[in-house]
Design a protein around this nucleic acid. Structure first.
Lengths: 321, 321
DNA sequence: TTGAAAGCGGTACCAT
DNA sequence: ATGGTACCGCTTTCAA
């Protein structure tokens, strides 16, 4: 490993000068700069971030807390985060927390052990305990939190309900996501607001998680525990697919007998048959903007916006009449 | 921030003693140990990994290079990696390299700047240039590489072709994945071996990437550039879905007119209609085993196995006759 | 069994 | 403009 000391010796200057040249801080003579640059090139030197971050008490790493990487929505968010981070010289440390507080606490501790400079969290909607570095909430964000970027879920819920109404849904089942997840409630209230104002009859079906591997059994439960319905507003696309599949298995036609609208617009939702009508969340954008907000907070200690709400959008395909 | 020095002062011993107590290295008197433990507890101390890794020249972080996080196969791999890593005190640094050598080089450099202790790469199938830390190849692995864990793609190809034959495919299109990806060729040769031995007529349709956003246009091309066929062996599930969708759009029935088999068995493949028959790759297992191999290499400088081949499995659903 | 001190590879203050 | 040096928090050697 070639260190700053090697560079200094080779260039015939002190380590202080090399450091200044590297960081463009303080004075560096023209001659010295040239010699340093040559030395760096011939030696193939690049600085050790661990040493730098020990002194600075801050590394160019950001922690990304995700509730479930196997849910296809989050990798897209992660990609947005990764793109922005990478363009700005930050590394991503991944934490898959699975809606598990202990795992989250563990990661938060890990993060501070590594002098991480900021955290993006899509985990619980709140800032983790005793955390001093910049913290931006992604996707799930409680009202009282300072910095967040999320989709306007209330609007999303409205959009879904309106679409169902326009395609003549009469008896609708609204799947309500986990109550402890900020956003799930917004979605629900948005949808119910519209449904109520039109006087439509509906049933609420509660789900207790968004975990992918629960989708199939949840779909079965839905059919067994609710009375007759002709429309479903699903918690997300995965659940929508599961319901669709279960409906077909039970002999219903889609969308003729039962129509379904999803939420997320995952990549494969357009690849299915029938194409899933859904509310698109700008997942990539969410990650990208979130990373931008965090990096601004880290580097300038301020951000242009504090609470950003991205607009969801109705994507019409074939699962509504 | 509470440091080892604070603990030492509080406990009335030297930092050296605290360090030894922490790491169970060298002698620590019974009294001292107790005092140190008390101090740690009351002060809420935990060691700073950055400082530790500066001295050790190795941090408890492993780099994970993925070709495309938005392809749903990789998050599953990542989850396996994350689970094993987390259970063993390692952090994951994520690198999405998008089959782009420059991005990969950039990450490899980043990784060494952070004294990363090992790398798991599903990127190119080869070990990155000039890399000295333990390196395990995931999923895509060239023969000549030392440590790797992959699915037996040759077998996978055979399985797919046999399934097609058993369901009476006559004119089959075999999608050949990108030639530069180790494994795509194995899959192809496995499939062609079986097809040839049975004397079936087939066409090869080449694809140049596995990127999800290319799937739809690729499916269109497939229909436009090949002559009549009744069966498709797809490169992966995403492509299989895209082909299925395009087929239906063009008025074919599945599986009556065209039958399709995928590869991967992604979570949502079973949620679709018709259910996608596919070759399951043990993605989670791959990640988990890969992480285990890497951690063994890091900690014991050896691993029980060097090249592991996981067996793919045929999952029968409804897209074959 | 213990502690002083020398690093690990940088940064930044303070003289010069 | 430049260099010497203390320091970031921890580990490890060596002497006591």
């Amino acid at each position: 490993m070639v260190t700053i000391k090697d560079v200094a010796e080779y260039a015939g200057v002190s380590v202080a000068t090399v450091s200044r040249a590297l960081n463009n801080s303080g004075y560096v003579g023209k001659q010295s700069r040239i010699k340093v640059e040559e030395a760096i090139k011939t030696l193939g030197y690049y600085p050790n971030e661990v040493a730098r971050s020990l002194y600075q008490k801050s590394s160019k790493m950001i922690g990304l807390l995700l509730p479930d990487i196997s849910n296809p929505y989050f990798p897209l968010v992660a990609k947005g985060v990764e793109d922005y981070a990478q363009q700005n010289g930050y590394m991503i440390i991944l934490g898959n927390v699975e809606d598990n507080i202990e795992k989250e606490d563990m990661y938060v501790k890990f993060f501070s052990q590594y002098n991480i400079s900021g955290v993006l969290s899509a985990a619980t909607g709140k800032k983790s305990q005793n955390y001093q570095v910049p913290f931006v909430l992604l996707d799930r964000a409680l009202e009282e939190e300072d910095y967040s970027i999320a989709t306007d879920d209330h609007l999303g819920g409205e959009l879904a309900a309106k679409a169902i109404i326009e395609s003549k849904g009469k008896q609708v089942v609204v799947m309500a996501g986990p109550k402890n997840i900020a956003g799930a409630n917004d979605r629900l209230s948005g949808a119910l607001g519209v449904l109520n104002s039109k006087g439509l009859s509906y049933q609420i079906f509660e789900t207790h998680s968004y975990q992918v591997d629960k989708a199939e059994e949840t779909a079965v439960q839905l059919f067994e525990s609710t009375s007759h319905f002709d429309s479903v507003i699903a918690s997300n696309d995965v659940y929508a697919l599961a319901v669709m599949k279960e409906a077909i298995k039970r002999g219903y036609r889609i969308p003729e007998d039962i129509q379904i609208i999803g939420y997320d617009d995952m990549l494969f939702s357009r690849l299915m048959y029938p194409g899933l009508t859904t509310i698109a969340q700008p997942a990539y954008e969410l990650g990208f903007q979130g990373a931008k907000m965090l990096v601004d907070l880290i580097e300038k200690n301020s951000s242009e916006h504090k609470k950003v709400k991205l607009k969801p959008k109705l994507i019409m395909r074939d699962s509504l009449r």
